[in-house]
């Protein structure tokens, strides 16, 4: 196997740790390609291990404000949402208070 064929085949391999036998055989016989493979494996492994990063600023405030402007967030839950969160529906126990559902006009 030629080294350039090896290089292309390595990039086509979804998993660098599970190469086809003929590629592994070439890598075992070729110092240049074994170094290349080892480096690619090291880079991919270390890149995957990079820690996830916290956003530079708190985005939730802006997201919430936009969702409110679009009427996607409600300040009082519908019964189905309460049930989804495990909140007991007390509507049968007391006179229901008027619902204050925030529904600002959708921004365009």
């Amino acid at each position: 196997m030629e080294c350039n064929v090896f290089e292309i085949a390595v990039s086509e391999s979804a998993d660098l740790s599970q190469l086809r036998p003929e590629l592994l055989q070439h890598a075992q016989q070729c110092f240049r390609c074994s170094g290349l493979l080892e480096d690619f494996q090291t880079i991919a492994r270390k890149a995957r291990k990079l820690a996830s990063v916290e956003p530079a600023r708190d985005l939730w405030g802006d997201i919430r404000a936009q969702l409110e402007r679009e009427g996607l967030i409600q300040t009082e839950l519908r019964p189905a949402a309460q049930a989804a969160r495990g909140v007991r529906d007390r509507s049968a126990d007391a006179v229901p208070a008027p619902r204050l559902v925030h529904s600002a006009p959708r921004s365009r």
Partner: peptide
């Protein structure tokens, strides 16, 4: 899905690092 802001916020905090990264 029912528009619960706390649920939205919970999902945001749960996934923010992965999405931001």
């Amino acid at each position: 899905k029912q528009g619960d802001p706390q649920a939205f916020e919970f999902l945001y905090h749960l996934h923010k690092r992965r999405v931001y990264s």
